[in-house]
Amino acid sequence: MRVTILGSSLTARHFVKYLGNCHQSVQVSLWTFDEAEYPEFDNVSSCLRYHGMKNLPNALLAADVVVNLHECTDFSLLPNVQKLQQHNIEVVRSVLFHSNSPLVHLSTPFLQCSHRWPNVYEPERDPAVFQPQWPFPEYCSTKHEAEKLVKNSFNDCYIEKCANVRRR
């Protein structure tokens, strides 16, 4: 089985490490936007490495499943909207164009935020309902747009909105 993992986030690095340690029969194709070097990637013997938008189609070739853990987060007061769109929307658009494989897409629980407590437990609701309450509007709008692209694609897909977990 070939799994293509997109991204160099902490989640992506742990997932690559997990596959390398526990599932040696899985061939991993790893794509990162930049040429990132992390020690977690070195321990996976059957890992094919790709980086840059030009190599994204190569990373997706023959994938049985694609796991998109790539994103750009910018929670600043003046976020770089162009960078958010490039990473959070255009990468997803390119993945959907170049691949017919099932897709697991990481989104954000911020799309479900409301002023009500508890405020992130309504995953079935339309995120646009909460748009006036999004804590980081520019970031959330790009993640919402990416979700719409994934939902409207012909690929089998699963959109995950995982909350941050703190380890003690």
Rank of each mutant, 00 (worst) to 15 (best):
M1E: 12
R2S: 04
R2V: 09
T4S: 06
T11C: 14
R13K: 10
Y18R: 05
G20V: 10
Q27P: 01
V28D: 03
W31R: 03
W31P: 06
T32Y: 11
T32G: 11
E37N: 13
P39N: 02
F41A: 04
D42Y: 02
N43R: 13
V44R: 01
S46R: 12
L48V: 05
K54R: 13
N55F: 05
P57H: 15
A62T: 10
D64E: 15
V65W: 04
N68I: 04
N68Y: 06
N68H: 10
H70N: 08
S76K: 00
L77M: 07
Q82T: 06
Q86W: 06
Q86Y: 09
N88Q: 06
N88S: 03
I89V: 15
S94L: 11
L96Q: 01
F97L: 09
S99D: 02
H105T: 00
C113H: 08
H115I: 09
E124N: 14
P127V: 03
F130A: 06
F130N: 15
Q131R: 15
Q131L: 02
W134C: 07
P135N: 15
E138Q: 13
E138M: 07
S141F: 03
E147A: 03
K148R: 12
K148T: 09
K151E: 13
N152D: 10
S153R: 06
F154W: 02
D156M: 01
Y158D: 01
K161T: 03
C162T: 08
C162P: 08
V165F: 06
